[in-house]
């Protein structure tokens, strides 16, 4: 199952767990299943049906630009980090 690295500022919702395994074949499924196990986490990561502006999703160390549709392999590791783009910055 994919492993989610829980951001430090969200660990109060996961009983302090830093890394959890969650089922799901897409980013949406993984986040939805994370929410089922740890209520409140989805709202931290998503704004409606999108990843929050300012958050970058890294799957196996590689940032995804596809968003919630991104496929997630069974052995993938996911990180939610500050979004880093080519340089355009005018915060949200």
């Amino acid at each position: 199952m994919p492993i989610i690295a829980i951001p430090a500022l969200m660990r109060n919702l996961t009983d302090g767990e830093e890394r959890v395994t969650i089922t799901g074949a897409t980013l949406r499924e993984v986040i939805d299943n994370l929410e089922k196990r740890y209520p409140g986490t989805r709202a931290k990561l998503c704004d409606g049906d999108r990843i929050r502006p300012g958050i970058g999703v890294y799957i196996n160390g590689v940032i995804t630009r596809i968003g919630m549709h991104e496929r997630v392999d069974a052995d993938a590791e996911l990180h939610f980090l500050p979004a880093i783009s080519g340089g355009l910055t005018c915060g949200t």
Binding site: A83, S85, G86, G87, L88, T89, C90, G91, T92
Partner: peptide
Amino acid sequence: KIADLGEGAVNLKYLCDN
């Protein structure tokens, strides 16, 4: 409005006001 400009999401009012 938050605008997705491909290179990153930005607050449009801030962008315009600048």
